[in-house]
Each structure stands twice: as C-alpha cells, then as structure tokens.
C-alpha cells in the first residue's frame, strides 16, 4: 500500500475521470458507426478493468442508440505463452461469453494495449468457444511497443511511451480509486 502511494506521487497524470469518460463515449460512437448490425456485437472485456470498460461502452451505446449490447469476460491466463517463466502466476478466472458466438462480432476490450500478447491469448481463448464472424479490438490506452502484428480498431488515447515506463489505469469500480490514467517513470 505504502509503495503504491509513493509511486502515484511520482507518476505523471495522463487522463482524468472526465477525459476517460469522453474517450469511452467516443469509442461507443465509433463502434456504432462501424457496426451496422449492432445487435450482433458482443463486448468482451479482459479482466478486470477491460470488463469494466466494456460495461461502460455498453452503457453509452444504450444511451445513444437504446440498444442493449451483450457483454462478457474472457480469461486469458490459461492461454498465455509465458506460463512457467513468470514468478507470479496470473489468477485464472472463468470466462463469461454469450454463446454461440457464430455470426457475431466480438469486440475485445482491454485497458492498456502494449505487446499484443494478451490480445493474442484472448483471440485464442475466444476461438476455443466458437467461431465469431469477426473479432475487433478496443483499448482505452495504446502505449505502443507491439511484439505481434496486432492493431486496435478503437483507441481511447495513443500514448507514446518508453519501454521502461509503466502505464497505470485506475477505475473506481475495479480499484476503489478515482478514474485515472497515469504514466510512471522508472
């Protein structure tokens, strides 16, 4: 706890609650524009902040179009390619997806897009449940440094970073702290 506090005081604020709200609302608009068959869209968050962001996107889409978009969660821990190389195992959670996925547009939602490896794991996980018509990707922050040929369809904020920096996202519902994106320099 103490250490987290120290870090936050050394971090540079990037987005405040209002900026996060606007970015998510813009993503909702873009999803509506890009997907004429909105009812077939499923917003699938990567736990735990991706799930919260997916819920918020769905709420905006409901406000704008009065359509209820289905949401879900996709566990990526058991699909990662680095098991056995990390000192700490990612916690495995059950996925929650509306099935079947055939004919649907699955939009993967994550807080920070970085190497792309988590997204690859998420695509593998989704494919083990079925074959959606298409998969798209939304991220609140794209910090660059991709290690795989993966590109987001919807981005809240493009944030050029150094590899040594850390992007921290805090959301009220998942972290019990006010909404904020900050950049920690090491």
């Amino acid at each position: 706890m103490n250490q987290a506090k120290q870090n936050s005081s050394a971090a540079v604020p990037i987005m405040d609650a209002e900026a996060i709200r606007r970015a998510i609302r813009r993503i909702a608009h873009e999803i509506i524009e890009r997907n004429p068959q909105l009812a077939k869209v499923v917003l699938v968050g990567i736990p735990s902040r991706g799930v919260e962001i997916a819920e918020r996107i769905a709420a905006f889409i409901h406000d704008i179009e009065e359509i209820d978009i289905e949401t879900g969660a996709i566990d990526v821990a058991m699909h990662r390619d680095d098991v056995g190389t990390r000192a700490e195992l990612p916690v495995v959670r059950a996925s929650k997806l509306p099935l079947p996925l055939e004919g649907r547009t699955v939009i993967i939602v994550d807080d920070v897009l970085y190497t792309g490896r988590t997204v690859r794991a998420a695509m593998d996980a989704i494919n083990s449940f079925g074959r959606p018509a298409r998969i798209q990707l939304a991220a609140l922050v794209d910090r660059g440094h991709r290690e795989l040929p993966i590109r987001p369809d919807y981005v809240g904020k493009n944030l050029p970073t150094a590899g040594s920096e850390k992007v921290q996202v805090r959301l009220q519902q998942t972290d019990g702290e006010p909404d904020e994106v900050r950049l920690e320099k090491q």
Partner: peptide
Amino acid sequence: VGTREIKKVPA
C-alpha cells in the same frame, strides 16, 4: 473449459 467447443487450453 470442459464446456467449451475446444476442451483444451495451451497453459
């Protein structure tokens, strides 16, 4: 995982 179409994960 046992309820998925592909009952196998690469963990």
